[in-house]
Design a binder for these strands. Sequence first.
DNA 1: ACGATGATGAAC
DNA 2: TTCATCATCGTA
Length: 178
Amino acid sequence: MRKVLGPSFFNRPTLAVARDLLGKYLVRKVRGKEIALLITETEGYHGTKDLACHARAGRTARNDPMWGKPGHAYVYFTYGMHWMLNLVTGPDGFPSAVLIRALGDELNGPAKLTKFLQIDKRLNTKPLAKTSGLWVEDRGVIVKRSEIQRGPRVGISYAGEYAHKPWRFMVKKKKSGN
DNA sequence: ACGATGATGAAC
DNA sequence: TTCATCATCGTA
C-alpha cells in the first residue's frame, strides 16, 4: 500500500492530523533520489487564540501560508540558522499547521530533519505533491493509540495557558536492542 | 549553561 | 529604525 495523502487528509482538525501523521512517511525527492522517512513526532499549532501559534499576530507576510489551503508546506526560518517544516491543516482561510519534529529515530529535532532533507524557503507555500519534491505517503503502517505519547509542545513557555496543552504527539520509543 | 546568527513583529 | 525575541542545536 502506497498512497499519497492529499488535501482531504489535511483538511481536518489540526490535532487529528498531527496524531494521524505518526506512522506516515515524509518523502523528499532531490536530485533524482527519493528519501522516505517515518514521521515519529509532530506538534499542532491551531488558530489565532493559540498563543504559541505564529497566527496569534494575525495574518502577516511570514505566516500567510498557514492561512492558505490544506496540504501545503509552511517553511520558516528561526534562530538565525534553522528551517522548520510545517504542513498546513484545516480549511482555506483558517490558520493552522502541524510542525514535523522528528523522522525515524535519528532525525529527532525539527531543524535536523530539514537540514538533512534540504528543506528551506524554496519549499514554502508549495503543495505537498510529487511535483514539489515533497509529499506524505501512507504506506500502511499502523500506529496504535497505546504506542502514541502526548505531551506539551517544546520551546513555547511564553504561551500562557497554551504552553501546557498536550498538542505534541510522538511514537513511543521501542526498547533498545530491538 | 550558553552562543551562533538573522528574520520578525512591536515599540518608539 | 531599533530592539528583544525566537516552534533550535551543538558544545561545555
